[in-house]
Design a binder for these strands. Structure first.
Length: 434
RNA sequence: GGGGAGAUACCAGAGUGGCCAAAUGGGACAGACUGUAAAUCUGUUGUUUCGACUUCGAAGGUUCGAAUCCUUCUCUCCCCA
């Protein structure tokens, strides 16, 4: 099987190189990719029922891969997810039960379908699930056919294993690299997939695959990894105070999603815009020039946030997020807020966390601390709420709460129904009274 | 099977009879400054009706008084065979 590569104008490796998306690449990989159409895959770990933005890196990788005329395959790890990847983990993982796993695989599959083209001729994308070839594979068969080819010494030399020798690691996790390695072998043998990609933490696992292919069949396969994204301040990418940033709107509203990108630091944005958007090199450089000339306009962050919000969600979601942001962070004042119509108010705060409180409770006036702790879950304890108020960190309807004894009543409601509570500068909560 | 080490707040990690709601560092949150950025500085980080109350793996015990001493239990790690 040897297919003609259909679109040669964009060279995959060159493209990744200037975007800073290459950590390691196996010798010969680039030559192969420039010569012919190649099928390549990336594995996704079904630990949650939605992909997070961290997973957007491999998604973008597959997208570039397809745009360069190659055939992208996304592998969802129905089988590997049952074992647990030790890479990058310092402790033994908890295993998910089968039902959860199936659910997660199905959800991730649906999300992946949004980004790749599954109907464009020979290089159409595909999704495979490694559970399909592992479900009928018995333990004895596996250790005879696969385990026999790879030595323990080889497996133990891997960083993912070495790092865990101190704290211990189960046989299950130890065998993970073999299971993943076999995926590569299986795909290489049955689907002519010659390349596996992934994050740099996957290098060891990927190489076990190419090694297995070489020893078992004398075949050749290739590998390419991306650097792990780190924020300039060294903290983990893709997380905020309130947790992971997910692609699923039900888990992370488009508003929050948009805000996440908008809030990225200048330094990080330069990295992100190369990785997460499809802007060309020239476009990015001109955006950077514009940004440097007037940093307070945050040209880069806006371009990044817009592009990715539209691609992950939709244009309408993006517009709503911008509108909400304008009102919350623009010249929005207490008066401006009062003037909002009910529909506008609701659409603006669609993605903001909401709480309901009954009418009578507010009618006569209610203490602010009680309102934000007991009636709603904005603060976990009264002590904390008081301290925050004393530190000037709480506002109601854009007006700072001066002391903890203050009470609020029906007169302060917006449209006689809503109240906007702010914890710090960026965390908004809507209280609906009625 | 034998020997050893250990379990303290979100994490790391001091504390080995009262001065301990528990050092220090990190993280997190907030304030100031800004550009909804970064850096910096400051504050907070068990609950509370501010009188207290419940915390140091679990349960008991000794004591006027326990994270600290004793007993049992649970769990974790390391080394040897």
């Amino acid at each position: 099987m040897h297919l003609e590569k259909k679109d040669m104008e964009k060279k995959f490796v060159d493209e990744l190189r200037w975007r800073g998306m290459i950590q390691d690449i196996m010798p010969g990989t680039e030559e192969l990719l420039n010569k012919q159409m190649v099928a390549g895959y990336i594995g996704f770990d079904p630990t949650a029922d939605s992909l997070g933005i961290g997973n957007m890196v491999p998604v973008m990788l597959l997208l570039h891969f397809q745009q360069a005329g190659h055939k992208p395959i996304a592998l969802v790890g129905g089988a590997t997810g049952m074992v647990g990847d030790p890479s990058g983990k310092s402790a033994e993982r908890n295993l998910l039960d089968e039902a959860t796993l199936n659910h997660n695989v199905a959800c991730q599959k649906k999300q992946l379908e949004k980004f790749l083209d599954f109907n464009c001729g020979p290089n159409s994308a595909e999704i495979v699930n490694n559970y399909d070839w592992f479900k009928g594979f018995s333990f004895l068969e596996f250790i005879r056919d696969v385990g026999k080819h790879i030595s323990i010494n080889y497996m133990m030399a891997k960083d993912s294993v070495k790092n865990r020798m101190e704290n211990g690691m189960s046989f299950t996790e130890f065998s993970y690299q073999l299971v993943q390695g076999y995926d590569f072998y299986h795909l290489w043998k049955n689907k002519n997939i010659q390349l596996q990609m992934g994050g740099s933490d996957q290098w060891g696992n990927i190489v076990t695959g190419t090694e297995l292919i070489r020893r078992k069949s004398g075949g050749e396969a290739f590998a390419l990894t991306t650097p792990l994204i780190k924020k300039a301040d060294g903290t983990k990418f893709g997380k905020t105070e309130s947790g992971n940033i997910w692609l699923d709107k039900a888990k992370t509203s488009p508003y929050k999603f948009y805000q996440f990108w908008l809030n990225a630091s200048d330094e990080d944005t330069k990295t992100y815009i190369r990785i997460f958007t499809l802007f060309t090199k020239e476009e990015i450089e001109s955006l950077e020039t514009a940004h440097a000339a007037a940093p307070h306009l945050r040209t880069l962050q806006k371009a990044l946030a817009k592009d990715i919000t539209i691609r992950v969600h939709s244009e309408a979601d993006f517009n709503a997020a911008v509108e909400a942001s304008e009102i919350l962070f623009g010249k929005g004042t207490a008066e401006g807020l009062q003037k909002l119509s009910e529909e506008d108010f609701l659409s603006v705060f669609e993605g903001v966390e909401q709480f309901a409180v009954s009418g009578q409770e507010v009618e006569a006036g209610i203490n602010i601390v009680e309102l934000i702790t007991e009636k709603t879950k904005i603060f976990p304890s009264k002590g904390e709420a008081r301290k925050m108020i004393q530190g000037g960190g709480v506002s109601v309807n854009k007006t700072k709460v001066e002391n903890a004894e203050m009470s609020v009543n029906a007169e302060q409601l917006i449209n006689n129904k809503y109240m906007l509570v702010q914890k710090g500068k960026k965390n908004y909560y809507v209280i609906k009274v009625g």
